[in-house]
Amino acid sequence: MPVHGFIDESVRDDHYLICVTVVEPAKLVPTRKELQHLLLPGERELHFRKEKPPRRRQLADRMKAMPVCARLYSATCTRKTEESARQACLFSAVTDLLGLRAHRLVLDTRDDRNAHDKQTLRRALGNRPSATEMTYEHLDSTAEPLLWLSDAIAWCHGAGGEWRRRIAPLVTTIIRP
Rank of each mutant, 00 (worst) to 15 (best):
P2C: 08
I7E: 01
S10P: 07
R12H: 12
D13T: 13
H15R: 14
V20Y: 00
E24M: 14
P25V: 01
V29M: 15
E34V: 13
L35N: 00
H37W: 11
H37K: 15
L40D: 04
R44I: 09
K50E: 06
K50Y: 05
K52P: 06
P54E: 11
P54I: 05
L59G: 10
A60M: 00
R62M: 08
M63W: 12
M66C: 03
V68G: 02
C69Y: 02
A70H: 01
A75N: 12
T76S: 15
T78F: 09
T78H: 01
T78K: 05
R79N: 12
E82P: 04
L90Y: 05
F91I: 13
S92E: 13
V94Q: 01
V94I: 14
V94W: 00
V94H: 02
T95N: 05
L98I: 01
R101Y: 11
R101L: 15
D112I: 10
R113S: 14
K118R: 15
L121R: 02
R122S: 07
R122Q: 10
G126H: 02
E137A: 15
E137F: 02
S141N: 02
S141K: 04
T142W: 12
T142Y: 12
T142S: 08
T142Q: 10
W148Y: 01
S150D: 03
E162W: 07
R166V: 04
P169R: 01
P169W: 03
V171F: 02
T173R: 13
